[in-house]
Design a binder for these strands. Sequence first.
RNA 1: GGCCGCGUAGCUCAGGGGAUAGAGCAACUGCCUUCUAAGCAGUCGGUCGCACGUUCGAUUCGUGCCGCGGUCACCA
Length: 596
Amino acid sequence: MTIFQEIQTQVQQAFPTLFGSEVELNKITINETPKDFIGDITLVVFPLLKITKKNPEESAKTIGEFLVNNNKNITAYNIIKGFLNLEINNDYWINYVLNQESGIKNQDKNETVLIEYASPNTNKPIHLGHVRNNVLGYALAGIYKANGFNVIKANLTNDRGIHICKSMVAWQHFGNGETPENTTDLKCRKGDHLVGKYYVEFDKHYKQQIADLIEQGKTKEEAEKQAPIMLAAQEMLLKWENGDAETIALWKTMNAWVYAGFDITYKSLGVDFDKFYYESDTYLLGKTIVDEGLKNNVFFKKEDGSVWIDLTEDGLDQKLVLRADGTSVYITQDIGTADLKYADFKMDQSIYVVGNEQDYHFKVLKLIMQKLGRPYADGIHHFSYGMVDLPSGKMKSREGTVVDADDLIADMINIAKEQTEALGKIDDFTEDEKTALFKTIGLGALKFFLLRVDPKKRILFDPKESIDLHGFTGPFVQYTYARTRSILRKASQQSNIDHRPSTIDYTLHASEKELIKVLYKYTIILEDSCKEMNPAKLIDYSYEVAKTYNKFYNDCPILAAEKEEEKIFRLHLTEQTGNIIKQCFAIVGIDVPERM
RNA sequence: GGCCGCGUAGCUCAGGGGAUAGAGCAACUGCCUUCUAAGCAGUCGGUCGCACGUUCGAUUCGUGCCGCGGUCACCA
C-alpha cells in the first residue's frame, strides 16, 4: 500500500469520529503537492464540505490535526485555501530507499491475456505504420506481463486473398524468374521487398489498363472490372481456393520469401510472438459459425442467399457476414479466428492491436460474438491506435509513399553512429560493441518516439527532420542509465556499496527527496499504464525519472559526498534509479547501454 | 450527410473537475582543472478551437457550432 492510499483510508475511517458521518473513498482526493508549496501530499477538502458541514479551513484543520497525531509518517501540515498540504517524515523516504528490494514485481493475476499485433499482409514489406503497431503491441504485452498477467503474443498473418494474388500475377507476368537469390536489385535480396516490388508493379499495370479501356469507351467502373490483369488475379484466387498445384506452389514460394524478410525485420525491431495464425488456415472457420448463428436467429439470410446481421438496434447498421456464393468476407474470418484463439488459450481478455481505421469493424465483431453468446466476448478489446502520417499525408504502399521500416531502422542506427562518434567517448569499444551500441541508441530513439505519444492519437513523422537524440527522447533516458552505471562502476572500485545501513541521520537535499518521490511512484505508474492500456504513461515516467536524476546528479556529489553514510545512501539512490529505468525500458522493449 | 476520434506555446506532445496549465524542439543567456555537457540552470513563448450549460470551482464534464482526420464496400 502506498502512503497515498494509506492516508486516504485512514481519513475515511476517521470521518465518523471527526465529523459524525461516513464518506465515500473516492471523495477523498489525494494529490502530490505542486512544487511551489510546502508539503509532499495534498488533500483537497472541497468535495468533503457537504459532509463536514464546516468551512474549508476548519475542515482541513481537523483532518490535518488528526493525521499529525495519528500517522507517525506525517510531521506537519499547512492549509492554503481548501488545500491541506501534508509533510512526510524524512525517515519515511529514507527507509523506503534503504529497504526497497531491487526487483519490484506485481502479484500474479492468474488471468490470461491474448494480444494480437503485427498481423501483416504478405504482399509487401512493412512500413512505419506497421512499426508503430509492432512497437505498441510488444510494449502492451510487456506491460501486462509486468502486471502479473499471463500473456500470449499472437500474430495473425494475412497470407491469402486477392491482394496476395496481385503480387503473384505481376511476378508471373513481369518477373522473368527474379528471386531473392538471383536478383540484381540489392533491396530485393530481402524477399519481402521483392514481393512488394511486384505488388507495386501490379498496380502500375492495372492503372494503365484501366486508362486504356476508358480510352476505348468503357466507363470507369467497367474498366476497373474488366482490366485483364485484375481478371487474372481473380482467376488466380479461384485457382488458389481450389488447391491448384501450380498456384499453391508459387504462393508457397513467394510467401517463403516474405517470411524470410519479415523475420529479419522482426528481429531488428526486437519483437517476437508466441503463436502465429495464418489466414490460409483460418479463413474457412467462420462459415460453420455462420450456420450456427442462422439457427439461433442471430443472423438472417437474404433472398440472394447472402447472410447478414442486423445491428440497427445497437446503433449500427446491417452487416454482411457471408457472400451469396458462400465465400467468406473479412469479418467471417475474424469470427472464426476468435473462436480458435479461445479454443487454444481460453483467454480472459483478447486484445487486437489494430489501427483506428477499423474501429467500426471491431465494434461489429465484438457485438457479433456477444450475440453468439461467446464466453470471451466481453473480454474482446480493440486497442485502437492512430495512423502515422507524413507531412504529405497518408502512407500508401501501392503508391510508394511509405517510410520503409528497414530503411528507417538503418537510418536511425546511422544517426546514432554519427552522433556517438562525434562525442568521442567510446573510442576504446570493439567494433562489435560499437555496432551493438549504435543499434541500442538508434532503436531506442525510434521506439521512444513512437511510444511517447498517446496511442489513440495520430503521429506526424517528418522524414526530413530525423528523430532527435536530445531532450525528451530515448537516448536521453539511456544516457542517464549509462551515467548511473558509470558511477556504480567507479564506486565498486573504491569501496563496498553493499553495506546497507538500516537507518541514516541527515536531512535530505531537496533534489534528493524529489528523486525519491519519483522513484516511489513506479509501481503506481506501472499499474496505471496497464489499466489505461497506455505505454506512453510508462515512457513519460521513465523520462521523469531520468530528468529528476540528472538534477540530483548536478546538485548532489555522490562519490565525493562529505559523509560516508551520505555517499552510501546516494549510491543506493543511483542504483535504484538505474534499475527502474532498465525495468521500464525492458517492459516496452527498449535496450539500455552500460556506457555511451 | 450519419457515426467515431482529435483541436493545449511557432513546432511535436503531456495534463484530464481543484492552487500560478507543463515538457521537449526552435531562439537567446549562463554552467565542464570536479562522479559521462546525449547534461544542468535560466529568458522568451498560451483567450487550453468558439459559445452556452452543470459546479463552490471547467483547459478537464455535457450540448451546439467551427476546423482536421477516419469510417459508413459482397476490400482487407
